[in-house]
């Protein structure tokens, strides 16, 4: 039951992101959707990932809110506005994708569950990224470093440091 409430909340606020006319509300609708997803994880024993998603997403959305005000005209949605292009095309494509996915979900014969969740899924996660999945961790680390450098390069004004 709790799951379905959270699922409806997540989807409804996901839709709200593109319906409300205020950027601030859109950002926080997205945040609500993400938090609802984080909360569903708490239901399936993924406490660590659930809390982590909530933690990360709040911070991300707040940073997004700052940028949104910086770059968007009319962030408060005081003016009625539409910022869409090829609206129908997008709607058709995404509806088709959704239908396809739903069909896949119900037609696929999902494998049965193998084994039970370990007593401490967090520990399992930690052991696996420090052990067999070490490569993933290293790739993530390098990706973060690359992102840090390229964002700084992109965002600063050219010529401030060179020449």
């Amino acid at each position: 039951m709790a799951f379905w409430i959270l699922a409806v909340l997540a989807v409804a606020s996901g839709i709200a992101v593109f319906v409300v006319d205020s950027m601030a509300r859109a950002t926080f609708a997205l945040l609500a959707s993400l938090i609802a997803v984080g909360a569903t994880f708490l239901l399936i024993d993924l406490h660590y990932l659930g809390a982590l998603i909530i933690l990360m997403m709040i911070m991300e959305m707040l940073v997004m809110a700052v940028f949104m005000i910086m770059f968007m005209m009319n962030p408060a949605g005081l003016m009625p506005m539409s910022m869409l292009h090829n609206k129908t095309g997008a709607a058709v494509i995404s509806a088709a994708v959704f239908a396809l996915l739903v069909a896949g979900i119900f037609l696929t014969d999902w494998p049965d569950r193998k084994g039970a969740p370990p007593p401490d899924p967090t520990e399992a996660l930690g052991m696996s990224i420090m052990g067999p999945k070490m490569l993933v961790m290293m790739v993530i680390g390098v990706a973060i470093l690359a992102t840090m450098i390229s964002t700084v390069v992109l965002a600063t004004r050219r010529g401030r440091y060179d020449a």
Binding site: A7, V11, G14, V17, F18, T40, S94, A95, I105
Partner: peptide, 16 residues
Amino acid sequence: LLAAALFAIGLYGALS
């Protein structure tokens, strides 16, 4: 189902 719905909504947003 939840995943598919979120994905489809996001796709709509990203396209439109």
